[in-house]
């Protein structure tokens, strides 16, 4: 099982879209995918038509009660895609930072939870809230690789800087170093700002950035309206093709690291 966490402390950079698009392509390739929604806004859950506030169990319960493998499996919601399941979020998650504060070890709850269902999935994709707190720390700590979508505009670069600093500090607290990939999103080749921001990203984060870009594509919005993953809604759209290319890159990167670790 491989765990990828999609994170950025800045909102609106394409975290949920990236999570869904990658999940769609992975499922299409026959992989079993588990999505974990750690954002109290529950956008990922709503995307798949899950009214999370109506559910009895969600990610929230993983933090507030002891969960066995069976209980975690009960918490999972199926989606319309047989290969994609989701651990849904609820708004109650917004209270976790207050109720858990900085209690020792609470940053490892999600890591332990997904390990319990490791046999059932090939890939786990975690969607993070745009706030650094107990939920994001959990998602980062569980990750084999962190995917950082960055909107190709200058304001987003500042947010990225902060995210990288967070990872560096966290790295000091963990035994292993974080592997992360920066993914330029919402790239609009018609605007100078997009091009300049992309060049700046390449210049500053040379080895950490995916060499491609995710272009702006109205198919993403239309796919969400239809509650379909982009690869199902518009298989040959430029957005889908970009995510397929990103996935190939990420898989290759993971394999390279495995080779090195051997």
């Amino acid at each position: 099982m491989v765990v990828w966490t999609v994170a950025n402390q800045k909102g609106g950079v394409g975290k949920t879209t990236t999570t869904i698009a990658l999940a769609g392509v992975l499922a299409e390739q026959g992989h079993r995918v588990l999505l974990v929604d750690t954002d109290p806004h529950a956008s990922l859950s709503y995307y798949f038509g899950i009214e999370s506030e109506d559910l009895d169990l969600s990610v929230y319960e993983l933090f507030t009660q002891v969960s066995s493998r069976e209980q975690i499996l009960q918490t999972l919601c199926p989606t319309q895609y047989p290969n994609i399941d989701i651990l849904p979020a609820t708004m109650g998650l917004a209270t976790l930072d207050r109720s858990l504060g900085n209690k020792g070890g609470m940053g490892l709850v999600l890591k332990k939870a997904v390990q319990k269902v490791a046999e059932s999935y090939d890939y786990v994709l975690m969607d993070c809230p745009p706030v650094l707190g107990v939920l994001m720390v959990n998602a980062l700590a569980a990750a084999d690789r962190i995917i950082i979508p960055v909107q190709t505009e200058f304001l987003a670069l500042k947010g990225l800087d902060r995210m990288i600093k967070t990872l560096e500090i966290m790295q000091g607290e963990q035994d292993t170093s974080f592997k992360y990939t920066i993914v330029p999103t919402m790239f609009d080749k018609r605007t100078k700002a997009s091009i300049l921001a992309f060049k700046k990203l390449q210049e500053v984060y040379t080895n950490k950035i995916w060499p491609g870009v995710i272009p702006i594509d109205t198919n993403f919005r239309n796919a969400s309206f239809e509650q379909k993953v982009p690869s199902d809604f518009a298989a040959n759209s430029r957005g889908t093709l970009a995510y397929k290319s990103l996935l190939n890159y990420l898989v290759k990167q993971s394999m390279q690291y495995k080779e090195v670790e051997r």
Partner: peptide, 25 residues
């Protein structure tokens, strides 16, 4: 502050985390 916060969250306490989870409320 960040370091302390992350260190707290990511260090297994002597008391089992699961007992903390049970008594969160």
């Amino acid at each position: 502050i960040m370091k302390n916060y992350l260190s707290e969250l990511l260090t297994e306490p002597e008391v089992d985390v699961e007992s903390v989870q049970q008594s969160v409320v």
